[in-house]
Design a protein around this nucleic acid. Sequence first.
DNA 1: TACAAACTTGCACTCAGTACAGGTTCAGGC
DNA 2: GCCTGAACCTGTACTGAGTGCAAGTTTGTA
Lengths: 192, 192
Amino acid sequence: MGLRERKKLDAWRTIRSTALRLISERGFDAVSADDIAAEAGVSRTTFFTYFPSKEAVVFDLDPSELQQWRALLEDPRDDLPLWDALTEVALGLARLLAERLPLQKRLFEQSPELCQSSRATCDSFEPDLKEWISRRSSDGDELRTALVFNTALAAFTTAIEAWDPDDSFDHFLEIIGDCLRWAGAGLASPAS
Amino acid sequence: MGLRERKKLDAWRTIRSTALRLISERGFDAVSADDIAAEAGVSRTTFFTYFPSKEAVVFDLDPSELQQWRALLEDPRDDLPLWDALTEVALGLARLLAERLPLQKRLFEQSPELCQSSRATCDSFEPDLKEWISRRSSDGDELRTALVFNTALAAFTTAIEAWDPDDSFDHFLEIIGDCLRWAGAGLASPAS
DNA sequence: TACAAACTTGCACTCAGTACAGGTTCAGGC
DNA sequence: GCCTGAACCTGTACTGAGTGCAAGTTTGTA
């Protein structure tokens, strides 16, 4: 890893942590891209070369996290049925996001618009995860694959919505498990 | 209905139809709020008093459609199990949106960012529909209610994603039916 | 006809995001 | 160590969304 790459990663992390600090202090809307750039000792232009939008600085994955995410998907978990394996992936993702989730959740509560962008971030997982699902599922039905993906995402999102950031993280994992189990079992049938 | 209200509705519809015409001609990004306002013979400020955002002009419901939507929810369909009743609501909503959906779908294909805003619009149904679901479901479990809502929405969205706007509308209704049936039956079990 | 409330308008402003033309810094061959 | 091209950063200037406000205009009502 050359000096260039190291500096880049440093810059990324400096901008990110500065942004999270400012935003958690003042709230998302009260911090401008200018503020973040200035506080991070970088130009506004540079900020936008590192992050495609102001929201991205809250939601984008650290390169090392991204690597973990890819690793998570590399194991096809052929030992488990599709939905169970998908549940494992969801739990793994949750653990990956663990550190920033409480802050993100608090920001959601402040401004509902942010929820939207968080879904955009989930969309950044979309291609990988869809490919994973379709590789795993026996039939090549695209509609079915898309439905499985969107439903799993809905279950995950529901868990995030329902979770209280002051609660323990284990409790969050339980909620995710519940949601996925219910969706897997079918919502037409009564809850077990 | 006084003159005032009639004029307001007229203005709303003029702005909307002007906007849809311009946008379908040139694409969403190539039309500014200024363009729409000018072409509709109204000021930019007025445009933004009628529509909270540029996206809203594509997705907001006409007041008469909104009325139909409320009517749809007024019938609790106690004759059907929850999930079947929810499917009926989804089909009703689709019929309500029928006229503008092909254009909206074409716009989605142009700019993925718009998909996001469309979810925001779905969110405008959220309070009503969540209330409807929780009123209908026997247990008062909020998590379960949220999951049912989000999953139904995911199924609906999946159908929109999968639908080809050149196909017949009946085909779209079939896809919605399929998605909801699958989600209702449980995605852990194989497709029927 | 007079008056208040509702509606429209132009203007000025903030801020996100993009384009671009320099200037600076790093990597690799000599 | 030095030179050169590429990668990177920066300031500037621009477009366009969205908001606030202080006028002016239109409508319902007494």
